[in-house]
Design a protein around this nucleic acid. Structure first.
Lengths: 137, 137
DNA sequence: TAATTATTGTAAATTACTTTCAATAAGGGA
DNA sequence: TCCCTTATTGAAAGTAATTTACAATAATTA
């Protein structure tokens, strides 16, 4: 049983063909995919896969931190497999390829400063970078 | 003529009652508003204001950097008046109130590090914080 | 292997957003 | 100041995205 199947199982969820299809599609792709795109690729793996199920599966996977939702100017429903331990996303503006990178430590100073300046107690941060990947340069 | 009217005028756009209404609504509110909410508040200032116009106005204002779009888990169309020179948003998870803060400098080191590690050339960054504001604590 | 119940897919409903187009009104020039 | 040009508006229709309802199916557990 692979890691994500473990996670699912431990959460009391079932491992099904549609869920395998969605997971496999995401595992094969290096850029954020929207539900429609996941469906299009997923039906090749599980013929009866439906859009509703894609939505539901993504919602579940996100709750279990198996996938991460990525917001971009044109679309806010791009999904990406979560790299363990890493926290932020860097997306290529040419080809869309995304990589993740750790960034917790770099932000602690900034967060402390902003807490002091604003009086807010900061609970979560959300950092996303955009640029050009090595291949596209 | 106020600053935003100058900006509009210089861009060759007209200053109209609907646009004034939208601007005034945003100026009065400290948290991100979605088009529907802007409409609801805006009709009090300009009775015939329509949702279509709200969408179009926000699109224009965003192009002119008069407003900023804010993404949150539940909604991706929250609009906030842009504070000049400042770059990032901090939103209270209790009341929704948002403040902006400057953050360019704190990120340059992080960006340089990630460029080196990933080989990407970073063009833009997007940082958003979530927390609890002084009033809600 | 059977029973339980989580999960799925179809279809319909809802919500969000965009486009079209005729009517209106802003603002530059006479 | 008034007229004329044309940007802007709002109603309505259209499209796309997302959610809900529910009966049928299939994954697990005993």
């Amino acid at each position: 049983m692979s890691t994500w199947e473990e996670t699912l199982s431990q959460a009391g969820c079932r491992i099904t063909a549609p869920r395998r299809a969605v997971m496999q599609v995401l595992a094969q792709t290096e850029w954020p995919l929207v539900p429609q795109e996941i469906l299009a690729l997923g039906v090749k793996l599980h013929a009866t896969l439906s859009l509703v199920t894609v939505y539901r599966t993504l919602e579940l996977f996100e709750e279990l931190s198996l996938v991460r939702r990525v917001h971009q100017d044109d679309k806010c429903q791009g999904y990406l497999l979560t790299a363990a331990g890493h926290r932020h996303v860097l997306i290529c503006e040419k080809c869309g390829r995304a990589v993740e990178f750790p960034g917790q430590d770099d932000l602690t100073a900034l967060i402390a400063r902003v807490e002091k300046e604003t009086g807010y107690l900061i609970a979560a941060h959300w950092l996303q970078l955009r640029g050009v990947c090595p291949t596209c340069r």
